[in-house]
Design a protein around this nucleic acid. Structure first.
Length: 373
DNA sequence: AAAGCGGGGGC
DNA sequence: GCCCCAGCTTT
């Protein structure tokens, strides 16, 4: 039975026998070269799930320290389900895509409530959980449970685009289905988890976006792009737009060595994270006047002073330049894009998840900068 | 089907 | 500066 393969458009491009030989070479390569990663030293589906969420849009080296801290603090699904969101966001600080943390926590709560604290061993049930899409469901099922389910991430898309010399935009649903069919045709049922991880590891180490190391690739003999010399043109990318830069102004308010921070609404950009009160700076407006006017609804007595520092920060689709002004005020009423405020003491710093801009403003400003030396 | 969502790292 | 990364959700 293992020799039977699901009929696939992929086998029209590469013969099934050649594909099987290539997969065998891939697995042999993986057995010899696989990295020793912490989530490869466990069979705990919870930890494998946690690692997969951390690795969404995140490189392995970046995820490693976060994985260690999260496993330490939340060793079980139950512990994560009972976690405090502010504390979780603080542990997540700097990783980005903070909706992952909120979804992870909600999913843990659903797993406790609906699945007895165990991850469901079922594709549809996994997909129904917050933060789990096709990739993560396939990764958990194959790696943790050994089920023959594809797991197609950016690495796998690139490897397949080259192996089959695909010239179309892979992000369309049509091509996503094509890649799923191709993966099913290649996937060895007895080593599903290893196959998926091998494809990802190949994309991360040899079949890189640039400078692919085709000479060492276990798939070289079957690879159509290598044969045709098109590997560096695969996968094709749609053109990108240029990103705008926004000017903003922020209030650096101290009271008895405590710094005023405000919390963003729970959803949307940087949801649930803490930051300095900050506002758009209209073109040609004076930062001092603009800040005082914008602060008025929250703090009528606010009095902005000198500019302490300028923070530059780049997001994916835009950049900001934030003028950070010293400011005095007696109180702050959160509303609009904020739902809470707090006077932060130095020894509380690690308990609050802060935005990258807030962190830079603190490090560059007079409150924190002198104590970092 | 397309857009929103972060920050780090390589070059 | 641009590109990419073990993607998911919302509209």
């Amino acid at each position: 039975m293992a020799s039977e393969r699901t009929p696939s458009p992929a086998t029209a491009l590469i013969a099934p026998e050649a594909l099987q030989v290539a997969v065998a070479a891939l697995l042999a390569w993986y057995d010899a070269e696989r990295r020793d990663l912490p989530w490869r030293q466990t069979r705990d589906p919870y930890r494998i799930w946690l690692s997969e969420v951390l690795l969404q849009q995140t490189q392995v080296a970046t995820a490693l320290p976060y994985y260690a801290r999260l496993v330490e603090r939340y060793p079980t699904v139950e512990a994560l389900a009972a976690s405090d969101l502010n504390e979780l966001l603080a542990l997540w600080q700097g990783l980005g895509y903070y909706a992952r943390a909120r979804s992870l926590r909600r999913a843990a709560q659903q797993i406790v409530a609906q699945h007895g604290g165990r991850l469901p061993q079922d594709y549809e049930a996994l997909l129904a959980l917050p933060g789990i899409g096709e990739y993560t469901a396939g990764a958990v099922l194959s790696i943790a449970f050994g089920l023959p389910t594809p797991a197609i991430d950016g690495n796998v898309r690139r490897v397949l685009a080259r192996l089959f010399d695909l010239a179309k935009d892979l992000r369309t649903p049509e091509m996503q289905r094509w890649l799923t069919m191709a993966s099913l045709a290649m996937l060895p049922p007895e080593r599903a988890g290893d196959y998926n991880q091998a494809m990802m590891e190949l994309g991360a180490s040899l079949c890189r976006p640039r400078d692919a190391a085709c000479g060492a690739c276990p798939l070289r003999q079957a690879c159509l792009a290598h044969d045709r010399g098109t590997a560096s043109d695969r996968p094709v990318r749609p053109p990108r737009r240029q990103t705008p830069t926004h000017e903003r102004v922020a209030a650096h308010c101290l009271d008895n060595d405590r710094l005023l921070i405000v919390r963003r609404l729970p959803s949307g950009l940087l949801g649930g994270l803490w930051e300095l009160p900050n506002f758009a700076l209209p073109p040609n407006a004076a930062p001092t006047a603009a800040l005082q006017m914008a602060l008025a609804p929250h703090a009528p007595d606010a009095l902005p002073g000198e500019e302490l520092t300028l923070v530059r920060h780049a997001y994916t689709h835009f950049s900001v330049r934030v003028h950070v002004l010293a400011c005095t005020l007696t109180g702050f009423v959160p509303s609009g894009e904020w739902d809470a405020c707090h006077w932060l003491a130095l020894d509380e710093l690690e308990r609050y998840g802060l935005t990258g801009v807030a962190l830079k403003a603190m490090r560059q400003g007079p409150w924190l900068a002198p104590r970092l030396l």
